[in-house]
Amino acid sequence: MKYAAVCLLVAGVLFAVTARWFGGGSESVQAAGTRYTVTVVPADRVEVRVTSGEARAVTLAAAMPSMGHALPPVGTVQADPGSFVATQDVFTMDGVWELSITLSGDQGQELITVTILV
């Protein structure tokens, strides 16, 4: 029984690693607040696409509650209209993260939180 559990654990790790190497990576996540709707693309530099509402500024703050990690907020730069890219790495390791996205614009300020598997 122990052997089977170890094999399953090794298989899971190998799957996660190879999926990342061959383009599986993390999937985008969509979320809606009352003022804005976003799609988060967790790449090397996290991208936030504002799909509803007109944001002028976006700030990201990541936390990994299961590990007790909380990182300082990260700024973004506007890459294209409605597309904001983090100015530095947001996630320090693989796992389940809570990403708090603060958006500001004509509709006011709003905080949207999403859970992302990296």
Score class of each variant (00 low, 15 high):
K2L: 05
K2G: 14
Y3V: 05
V6G: 03
A11T: 07
A11R: 01
G12E: 03
V13R: 07
F15V: 12
V17C: 03
V17K: 04
A19Y: 05
A19C: 02
R20L: 12
W21E: 08
W21N: 05
F22D: 06
G24E: 09
S26R: 14
E27G: 15
E27C: 02
E27L: 11
Q30V: 09
A32V: 02
G33W: 09
G33V: 08
G33F: 07
T34Y: 06
T34I: 02
T37L: 01
V38E: 08
T39P: 00
V40Y: 03
V41H: 14
P42G: 10
R45D: 02
V46Y: 07
V48A: 04
V48F: 04
V48M: 03
V50D: 05
V50W: 09
S52I: 00
A55F: 06
A57I: 00
A57P: 00
V58G: 10
V58R: 10
A62F: 09
A63R: 15
A63S: 15
M64G: 07
P65F: 08
S66R: 08
L71C: 00
V74H: 10
G75T: 13
T76E: 10
T76Q: 11
V77H: 10
V77F: 14
Q78D: 01
A79L: 09
P81H: 09
G82V: 04
G82N: 09
S83C: 01
F84A: 00
V85D: 02
Q88G: 13
D89S: 14
M93C: 06
D94F: 13
D94W: 15
V96W: 07
V96I: 11
W97R: 08
W97V: 04
E98W: 01
S100H: 03
I101R: 03
T102I: 04
S104N: 04
S104Q: 07
D106S: 15
D106G: 12
Q109W: 00
Q109K: 14
L111T: 15
L111N: 14
T113G: 02
V114E: 02
V114D: 02
T115G: 09
T115Y: 00
T115H: 01
I116Q: 02
L117R: 12
L117H: 09
L117K: 12
L117N: 12
V118H: 12
